[in-house]
Design a protein around this nucleic acid. Structure first.
Lengths: 206, 206
DNA sequence: TAGATTGTTAATCGATTAACAATC
DNA sequence: TAGATTGTTAATCGATTAACAATC
């Protein structure tokens, strides 16, 4: 009888946007905000923001709004952004190179701790501060290093087989930069980053 | 009386995914596909694919499915992906560097043709094959070079003012890598790329 | 023809919004 | 207290799906 409906994916998808905005407001030195303020900043209705938050509890005070630091902490907790996540990077090409050097992770609780490739020319060489490992050693290293998230930066043709290996190795979340939709078993999370897709979503309107 | 409802944004958002899959099938040497095939590959219902396409015309044959090359051409035309778009890159930091060197654009009809920064230390220097220009010269260069799309790769604190300058200069589409939601007038397109947002959308489920 | 798949309609499902009592 | 804003309900809106006649 304790049928709790899961929070819709679309709501979860907005929480990181809220969290990002709250961090920004904090950095600006603000301490209080209202759903109307956030709504104006984010281009989302205030009712939607309140409704989204209400899935998780009551974080505001009537007449006052929200304590930014408090709401930030709550969202970090809900999203599990209050801990550090170990990530593996698969693919040591140009794209992998850029991702490995990207600074935006650290400080947000995400860190790349190992890099894999299947090219014998690359294995053993360095990519930034990492030694490139043979993808054949993926499963054991993922276990040893307690990797929970993988970033896929291999060519489209290789992506599905890499993803299969990752799933096999017990990875639960994959950030896929390869320009292809991949198949994963239910329960494994995949998110996509493909700039071309975003650009084509805009050119239609130009 | 010619009230034509615009095609929903969410439908436009899926078209590039379809196009990407069709290109992949073509590269694999296939010539025909059915909505059921695509559905299986993309994790989308076949009814939805057919409905999405029906907004733009009748591209299939009953009993047969779709000619891949033909449907690909149609989608390219709808999305205006059958021409070349000139892009300006704003921000010559680490992220801008990675974006400028990213190879995935060319061949898809997108090309960066100029790079801007506001740092006097950087202006005049080279970023890859580009000489970094003063952002103060943005408007005139955008006009001269017929730039229609901008990629924003500046720190969050600078993003809104850069976006304001871009809008002022007549840019109609912005791909924003800065981790902040920006305000633009109606009619200006913005798409966001922030890996942290994608990662946080997954950790909730882990 | 028989089999398959489209394009489209109507039904279902889910998400957004408007409105307001509760309350700080 | 008066004013403001939350959390939540009910109404609206829009998107997805199931089903099937049309037809290749």
């Amino acid at each position: 009888m304790s049928e709790t409906k899961p929070v819709p994916d679309i709501v979860i998808g907005r929480l990181p946007i809220y969290l990002r905005a709250l961090n920004y407001l904090l950095a600006e030195g603000q301490t209080i905000t209202a759903s109307k303020d956030l709504a104006l900043r984010l281009g989302i209705s205030s009712a939607q923001i309140r409704k989204d938050l209400s899935h998780f509890g009551e974080f505001g005070k009537q007449g006052m709004g929200y304590d930014i630091a408090h709401l930030r902490d709550q969202l970090r907790s809900i999203l599990k952004a209050d801990r550090v996540w170990n990530m593996a990077l698969i693919g040591a090409g140009d794209l992998g190179h850029a991702i490995a050097h990207y600074a935006g992770w650290e400080g947000k609780g995400f860190r790349i701790i190992c890099v894999f490739d299947n090219n014998p020319q690359k294995i053993g060489r360095n990519l930034g501060r990492f030694q490139i490992c043979d993808i054949a050693t993926l499963a054991e290293r993922v276990r040893e290093l307690e990797v929970e998230i993988a970033i896929v930066a291999v060519p489209a043709q290789a992506a599905q087989s890499v993803v299969d290996k990752l799933v096999e190795a017990g990875i639960g979340a994959i950030l896929n930069y390869a320009p292809i939709t991949v198949k994963v078993p239910a329960g494994v999370q995949v998110q996509y980053i493909d700039p071309v897709i975003h650009l084509q979503r805009m050119t239609y309107y130009l």
